[in-house]
Design a protein around this nucleic acid. Sequence first.
DNA 1: CCTCTAACTAGTAATGATTACTATTTAATT
DNA 2: AATTAAATAGTAATCATTACTAGTTAGAGG
Lengths: 121, 121
Amino acid sequence: MKSTKQRNVILDIINNSYDHLDAYGVYEEARKKIPNISLGTVYRNLKALEDANLIDAVFDGADKLRYDRKTWHQHFICTRCHKIIDIYDLGFEQIDAYKNNKVMNYKIILEGICEECQKEE
Amino acid sequence: MKSTKQRNVILDIINNSYDHLDAYGVYEEARKKIPNISLGTVYRNLKALEDANLIDAVFDGADKLRYDRKTWHQHFICTRCHKIIDIYDLGFEQIDAYKNNKVMNYKIILEGICEECQKEE
DNA sequence: CCTCTAACTAGTAATGATTACTATTTAATT
DNA sequence: AATTAAATAGTAATCATTACTAGTTAGAGG
């Protein structure tokens, strides 16, 4: 992976933001540094950085992917407004009630390489 | 919510499938019962059924929403082929290694109504 | 340094999942 | 049975994302 000005700016934006930006939000931020950066470049790099495990992608529960720094934390997602709230201090015993947010459901998603894909390596 | 033939068929398909169908997959199944059912009807009802908490939506990690019955379970999602595997017996102590699948990451997503949205009620 | 080339970029067009729209039909209440 | 709000089929539109193309650049090897 080559190190380009565009890629570095994008990684920087994600690493310094707590806003769970979507691709267009990253694009808007990036234009402040590189005014003629292309939206396609933003999408391509977000995907490349995610594949390289340098950033995380979070689905907002509605219709869009949002991007997030790698610092270990979990998420609370509001099913009404689709706001994403970071959780740093989640103990399993508190899954049912997280602070003042009404938890209706929780999902534990394991991500990795399935057996079949491992065989193909 | 009115009870229609279309809605009942769609709910039935989800409740009797272990395939994590996407909207188009549900559409194809539904057409076996109602040949001229409209794709828009499928989308509208999937969303309505999800809002009514009768079915679940799962993001496949790539680009599509898939629908799932409400039976309590968790998911393993392959980051390579985006296969979704049901997990019924997840203990927290085994999060790091789930059967023969290589778990690279896990996400705990709490879903509910955030403080601000609660105030608006 | 200089050359070379694979990887990258900007800009634009295309794709594909999802939503919106419209005229018609239907569930279910009075 | 009459009424009507909600639902439907079919189609058009939207919008997030990806693909394409011609030109540019990072960085490896001489």
